[in-house]
Simulated scan of single mutants.
Amino acid sequence: MAKNALQAQLLKAGLVDAKKAKKINQQQQHAIKTGHNEDDVKQALAAAQAEKLARDQALNRERQHALELKTQAANIRQMLSQHQIKDTSGDVTYQFIDAGKIKKIYVTQEVYDQIVKGRIAIARLDEHYPLLPRALADKIAERAPEVIVIRNEKTVPQQGIDEDDPYAAYVIPDDLMW
């Protein structure tokens, strides 16, 4: 029943029973008939494991990136809600464009002047527009520039004014009301 000497010795010693030896022989015969040997199977298994590992790592990277984006958005929302300037409602209307639509907020004259000068910025938080100090708006703009709606820069007057311009004496104010 045993085809090689090692199997015969294992059977004699009682380490392997006859059923197991027969099963191993059948597997060897099947591998010979089908042309598969153990090395090919091991290589295919190793390749499949490597491919699965690569897929798992890519999926893990995507999940980690999504988690980082979610965490960053939560941090920005928290900064906006905690550090917004309170008690800004007043009678003066400040109008601005957000997503192609004209929006308006009612602020005090002091706040209006600070928005125009660039000391206060306007951000978007869901359907609301919180007012933020300039330093915080700059930090948020580094992480998520789409959140900041208005962040006026201090304008430097143009040096090259044309002398022949008949309207040179008429300066357009920065805080022109619509």
Rank of each mutant, 00 (worst) to 15 (best):
N60G: 10
I76N: 04
K52F: 06
G35Y: 05
R134C: 09
E62S: 13
Q43K: 14
T93N: 10
A73V: 04
A169F: 02
Q29N: 12
V92L: 02
A99V: 10
D40T: 12
D113A: 11
I24F: 06
K22C: 05
A121I: 08
K117E: 13
Q43M: 10
R77C: 06
P133I: 12
Q114M: 09
L176F: 07
R63D: 11
S89A: 12
K42A: 15
Y170I: 15
A44I: 08
R119G: 11
L125R: 14
K103E: 13
I32M: 07
Q159P: 04
A5I: 14
V41R: 07
T155L: 14
A121R: 01
V107I: 12
L15D: 03
K19V: 12
I85G: 01
L80F: 01
A2M: 08
A13Q: 14
H65W: 05
F96L: 09
N152C: 03
V147G: 01
Q159Y: 04
P173T: 11
H83P: 00
P133D: 13
G160L: 08
D165P: 02
V107T: 08
Y129M: 05
Y112H: 15
Y106V: 06
K33H: 13
A18D: 08
G35K: 06
I120V: 15
T71R: 15
A135P: 00
D162Q: 05
S81M: 09
K42G: 01
A46G: 07
D40V: 11
N75H: 12
A48T: 08
D113W: 02
D162H: 04
L176W: 08
L131M: 12
K23C: 07
A137Q: 05
H36V: 11
L125V: 06
L6Y: 08
D162F: 04
P173G: 09
V92E: 07
L125A: 13
Q64H: 11
H128F: 10
I102P: 03
